[in-house]
């Protein structure tokens, strides 16, 4: 069961592009959380420490989230092809 090169390239391209926005949003959300005495609260602060922490979180999260999304997409594509063509791939 093979996935065409063109489909694979386009999938990677879309994931890479969307993942930049997704990882930046996720990073800023994660570093904005602060303990509140009972729960975790969202405190958005626009200072240089926040920008640095967001960039650091992005650097770590971008490759990891790319890998996770890519693997999930690849599995979904394989399953869809399996459903369309059957186990022999006909």
């Amino acid at each position: 069961m093979k996935i065409r090169k063109e489909t694979l390239e386009r999938t990677i391209y879309i994931i890479l592009l969307l993942n930049i926005i997704l990882s930046l949003i996720l990073s800023s959300i994660i570093v904005s959380f602060r303990g509140s005495g009972r729960d975790l609260l969202f405190f958005f602060e626009n200072d240089k420490e926040f920008v640095l922490a967001t960039l650091l979180a992005f650097v770590v999260l971008y490759p990891i989230s790319f890998l996770i999304i890519y693997l999930a997409t690849f599995i979904v594509q394989l399953l869809m092809r399996y459903k369309e063509n059957g186990p022999a791939g006909n």
């Binding site: 570093v31 303990g35 005495g37 640095l52 922490a53 979180a57």
Partner: peptide
């Protein structure tokens, strides 16, 4: 008093 908070931002830094 629970007046010190855990900060993920400062932790990462």
């Amino acid at each position: 008093n629970q007046d010190v908070y855990y900060s993920l931002k400062n932790g990462l830094i």
